[in-house]
């Protein structure tokens, strides 16, 4: 089955300079009861975003009128904790195509890639530059080029290259799917079982 394709993007960014954001913050367990993949964006960062009565908390960045865009930029060790793919679904469903951090938890990174959400790991220095850029100008544009594997702050031209597994890169650019790939090797699997 084809999955979401990602190649290139230019957008403003949403800053979330908090470290160790775990998947319980991205989507709390009590919202994991849905049996489809849709609608999780409504509860993205639920307890940081809304008060107990469900009113938006003004001081949270997603409720701030100045910040919007398709790129979420967060502190290090983003996506730690639970393996819930609902975290990646919630971020993508809300409208983000890219998450940038100086460090990602392994399972989250895999889940994101399997949903056409590109996790970009940058240096501490570049992360700081991104935060500086967005706090200087909330509409600062950032360019992401997957083919050439770079992320660039458009106004200053500062850029950094990022790593991605070549197979996963091909999957994102072409919309390939892991299951199709393994099924194309089904004979090998059956031979393995006979060993």
């Amino acid at each position: 089955m084809a999955t979401k394709i990602f190649k290139h993007l230019q957008s403003s960014i949403v800053p979330l300079p908090i470290e160790n954001i775990d998947t319980d913050q991205i989507i709390p367990a009590r919202f994991l009861k849905a049996t489809t993949r849709d609608g999780f964006g409504n509860n993205l960062f639920r307890d940081w975003r809304f008060d107990k009565e469900g009113n938006p908390k003004e001081d949270f960045v997603l409720n701030h009128p100045n910040y919007s865009g398709k790129i979420l930029v967060a502190g290090k060790n983003f996506g730690c904790g639970s393996s819930r793919e609902h975290a990646a679904w919630a971020i993508a469903d809300y409208g983000f195509d890219v998450v940038v951090s100086s460090f990602f938890a392994d399972i989250f990174k895999g889940n994101a890639l399997n949903n056409g959400l590109l996790p970009i790991q940058v240096s501490d220095d570049f992360l700081k530059k991104l935060f500086d850029a967005v706090y200087a100008d909330a509409h600062a544009q950032v360019e992401v080029d997957l083919d050439n594997q770079f992320i660039k702050i458009v106004s200053t031209g500062e850029q950094e290259t990022f790593e991605i597994n070549p197979y996963k890169k091909a999957c994102l650019i072409n919309g390939y799917d892991d299951i199709d790939y393994i099924l194309s090797n089904k004979q090998l699997v059956e031979e393995f079982e006979k060993r």
């Binding site: 393996s83 819930r84 793919e85 609902h86 990646a88 392994d106 399972i107 895999g110 889940n111 399997n114 949903n115 597994n165 197979y167 892991d178 299951i179 790939y181 393994i182 099924l183 089904k186 699997v189």
Partner: peptide, 22 residues
């Protein structure tokens, strides 16, 4: 080790997982 739901589907469908050696 723990996996996400897309990978649960992968293992249900193939009894295998695409995984980079850590």
């Amino acid at each position: 080790f723990g996996i996400g739901t897309s990978q649960v589907e992968q293992v249900l469908a193939t009894q295998c997982l695409l995984q980079q050696r850590p």
